[in-house]
């Protein structure tokens, strides 16, 4: 997105709005990871505590999601840069 035609007052407003949205996006990503990794890792409901296997699964699943999300972000940024230069 190109905000170069925004004056300084508009840029200041936009920065504030973007900061708020980043906070909301982070919370949404957090909730998403919990939901996906719970679904993937937890299938035994005879005990309340996470088994060590489930615990490791949640850690790996979270790590993988973050790396996946970073990789998609990097490719998407490249794609957008390409589009912009055409």
């Amino acid at each position: 997105m190109d905000f170069s035609n925004f004056n300084s007052a508009e840029q200041a407003h936009m920065t504030k709005i973007i900061e708020k949205k980043q906070m909301q996006d982070f919370l949404k990503m957090y909730a998403n990871i919990v939901e996906k990794c719970f679904t993937t890792c937890c299938n035994d409901f005879t005990s309340k505590a996470l088994s060590s296997k489930e615990d490791a699964c949640v850690a790996n699943c979270t790590e993988k999601w973050l790396k996946h999300s970073e990789r998609v972000g990097a490719r998407f940024a490249e794609f957008n840069a390409e589009q912009a230069s055409q």
């Binding site: 997105m1 998403n32 996906k36 790996n60 979270t62 993988k64 999601w65 790396k67 996946h68 998609v72």
Partner: peptide, 28 residues
């Protein structure tokens, strides 16, 4: 719009390429 699009792309590609399987470790 771009954020929604990006989030759906992340989810769709996770389902196609990574998701569901029990993860052996934390790396792709």
């Amino acid at each position: 719009t771009v954020t929604d699009f990006f989030n759906r792309m992340v989810s769709s590609c996770y389902t196609k390429c990574v998701g569901g399987r029990y993860p052996a470790d934390g790396d792709l």
